[in-house]
Amino acid sequence: MRHTTLKSGLRELLAHTLLFCGIGLVLTLAGWLGATDLLALLLSQPGRRWPILLLTLILSLAISGFLIFAHRAAADRANLAVMQQKAATARQAEIASQLAMLQAQIEPHFLFNTLANVQSLIDQDAATAKQMLAHLNDYLRATLTRTRLPQGTLGDELTVIRHLLFIAGIRLGERLQWQMEVDPGLLTHPLPPLLLQPLVENALKHGIEPALLGGRLHIRAGHLGDELVLTVSDNGVGMPPSGHGHGVGLANVRQRLDSLYGAAGRLRLQPNPEGGVCAALHLPWQGDQAGDSPISQA
């Protein structure tokens, strides 16, 4: 550190020395261009030496100060850009870590339940067991592809959710009905992974599965103003008396929304008029389409 400071001081001293030595040449050049040659005036009129020297010194210090200020401002801008890049890299790493943590929390529960169902179906209904394994294979392949990308699309997320619902449908049978209502033009809209899927998992686990007769799951996506609105509604057992969502999945979704969008992204939970719960994700619109896609308001 001391060596760096000494080196920087010597560099500034050299710059000042060169500046003072060169100021005479600059003034002479100015004389050639038609301005007053202060150097020649200094030599020809000794009586006016000190005023001229003072003027030269002030001019030199002004030019030197400007150059030093410009150099330091450029260095500060470069340092700020480096710091911003490091902060962005750290933020991306934090978001990737959160995604990996959320993935690790979701996958084992779903995987173990599915494999247990396959095991029970092998002796009773081998064809259905084979069908469930095929959907599980497609689900895991789509999930692996999605989580390797820094940014996915709504279509990627719905592909994973579709396989998840096919598997849940085999397990729950007629107790589960589901529907997706999504404008095809929205499928390419950017969407970070594992924002919508936990809402579907939550609706299945806490809304439809505990209901004696099961229920219906409805997934909607629409462009409303400057937001992409994604809703997952069910007509299951409804919200708990506390009025808050269940489990770590929703807490992780809220945390990821805050990390990704700040105040511009939010999750809203409220009772579904048909019974059950309606969960709505409000995300900043990142597309270039004009107009609003119709979407039911909860």
Rank of each mutant, 00 (worst) to 15 (best):
R2T: 06
R2Q: 08
T4Q: 05
K7S: 10
S8D: 09
G9D: 07
L10A: 09
R11S: 11
E12M: 15
A15Y: 05
T17P: 00
F20D: 06
L25H: 14
G31L: 11
L33E: 06
A35M: 10
P46C: 13
P46Y: 04
W50N: 14
I52R: 01
S60T: 05
H71I: 00
R72Q: 12
A74R: 11
A93V: 14
I95H: 10
I95V: 13
A96F: 12
M101V: 09
L102G: 05
Q105G: 11
I106K: 06
Q131G: 15
N137G: 04
Y139E: 02
L140Y: 03
A142H: 11
T143D: 08
R148I: 06
Q151V: 09
V160I: 12
H163F: 13
L172Y: 02
V182E: 03
P184G: 04
P190V: 01
P192Q: 07
V200I: 08
E201D: 06
E201I: 02
A211V: 04
A211D: 05
L213N: 05
H218I: 00
I219R: 02
L224A: 12
L230N: 01
P241N: 12
H246G: 04
G247S: 10
V248W: 07
G249P: 05
N252F: 06
Q255A: 03
L257S: 01
Y261I: 11
A264M: 09
G275T: 12
V277I: 14
H282N: 06
P284H: 01
Q289M: 11
A290D: 10
D292Y: 08
Q297W: 01
A298H: 06
